Computed example of a mutant assay.
Amino acid sequence: MATSIKDVAKEAGVSIATVSRVLNDIDVVNEDTKKKVLDAIKKLGYRPNIVARSLKTQRTKTIGILIPDISSQFYPEIVRGAEDVSNIYDYNIILGNSDFDIEKEKEYLRVMKEKMVDGVIYMSSSLQEEILDLINELDLRTILVETKDKEGKLPSVTIDNIAAAVDGTNYMINKGFKDIAFVGVERDAVNAWGDRFKGYQKAMEEANLTVSEELVYTSDLRVKSGYKAAEQFIKSGKKFDSVVCATDELAMGVINGLRDNGIKVPEDVSVMGFNNNVLSEIFYPKLSTISQPSYDMGSVAMRMLIKILNKKELDQAHFVLPHGVIERDSVK
C-alpha cells in the first residue's frame, strides 16, 4: 500500500497541515520541524500525488522546453544546463522538438499548456508574431533563449549574435581573405540566425568587401545543408577563399563538401564555424569557431524562470552572455 501524507505526519509527530506546508515550501515551518518531516518522507519513501497537488496549488513543478532541432549539438547542452538547475529546485522537464516547423511549435505550446506546465523555456528557428500571440493567449510564462522579441517584452538569455558574427568575419578579413562566403539558416529571421547574417554583412561592408548573392546559402542547420552549400558555391563559378558558417554543423558539412570536390581546408579554402560544440575540437581539421556558453544559457534561463514562478524580481530581464573566437586548424 502506498505511503500517505497521514503516514508521514504520524512518523514525524506533526500535523498533516505541517507536512503540507513543508511540501509546498511555505516558510512558516521552523528548521527542526522541517528536518523531521523531510527525514520521515525519505524513510517512508513518500511521493506526493502530483495531480492532486497541482489541482490545489495550480502548479505542477514542471517546465516545458521547446527546441528547433534535437540533432544539433548546441541545443542539448542548453537543455542540460536548464535541467541541472531544475533538479536543484525539484522541477521536472517536458521537452519538445519542433523540427523548424512553426505549426509543430504551436502544437507543442498548446500541449504544454494542457499539461499545466508552470512555464516554458523557448528556442526557435524564427520567433514569429503568431507564436508571440499564442504565448500571450495561453498565458505561458516564458523565457527566450538565443533570441529576443522585437519589443523586448519577454525575458531572454542570448549572446550578441551580430557582434559575434562581426568578430568571426573580421577574423577572416584580418587573415587577408576577401572573397568570403556565408552559410546560414534564415537571413531575415528575428533571432540568432538573422543576426548572424547581419553581422557577416556588416563586417563585409565595413571592410568595403562585396557580399555576393551566389556566395550566400541559407537552409537549415544540418550538416547536409553545409555540404549542399559547398557544392553550390563551386558550381556558381564565383571565386571564394573562405566561408563563415552560422553553426559548427554547417561548417563540418561545408568542409566535407569541399573535400569531396578536391578542395583542401584550410590550404585552399578556410572555414569558420559557430557555437564551439563538442565535435568541433575532434573534427578534422579542428574547427576555428565562435564560442558561446550554451550550458550557462540554459542554467541562467531556468534560474530566471524559477524566480518568476516564485514571484521574485529578476536582477535583469535580458542577459547577454559573452562570446569569443576560438582559433584552431580550419582557418589558414
Rank of each mutant, 00 (worst) to 15 (best):
R259F: 12
A246S: 09
Y217F: 15
A181I: 07
F233Q: 06
N191V: 04
D220F: 03
G194D: 01
K228T: 07
D195N: 15
I234A: 04
M252Q: 07
I255M: 00
K198Q: 08
S212V: 14
K178R: 15
E249G: 03
G199T: 02
N191R: 12
T210D: 11
Q232F: 08
V183S: 04
A192K: 12
L258Y: 11
D179C: 09
R196G: 10
E231G: 04
A189D: 02
G199F: 04
G226S: 01
D260T: 10
G237Y: 10
A246W: 08
R222D: 07
L221G: 13
G237P: 08
E186F: 11
R196Q: 09
E206N: 13
G253D: 02
V223T: 13
V254G: 06
D195W: 07
Q201A: 13
M252D: 01
E249T: 10
G184M: 01
D220W: 03
F233T: 03
K239Q: 02
S225N: 04
D241F: 01
S212H: 14
L209M: 10
K235P: 01
K235F: 05
V216Q: 00
S212D: 12
K178M: 14
A181K: 08
K224P: 03
E213N: 13
W193H: 08
G199R: 05
I263V: 15
R259N: 12
K202V: 06
A230Y: 14
K228H: 12
W193I: 00
K238Y: 06
C245S: 05
D188W: 06
M252S: 02
A189T: 05
G199I: 00
N256C: 08
D220T: 14
W193D: 08
I234P: 04
K178V: 15
M252V: 06
F182Q: 05
S212E: 13
Q201W: 09
K239G: 00
V185C: 11
I234C: 04
A229E: 06
E249N: 12
V190L: 13
F233N: 03
G184P: 02
R187N: 07
E186R: 09
K239F: 00
V254E: 07
S242P: 07
Q201D: 12
K202E: 09
K198N: 08
A246I: 06
G199D: 00
T210F: 07
Q201Y: 15
N208V: 03
E231C: 10
V190Y: 13
A181S: 03
V183D: 04
R196K: 13
I255Q: 00
A229N: 07
A207G: 03
M204K: 08
L221C: 12
E206W: 01
V183F: 09
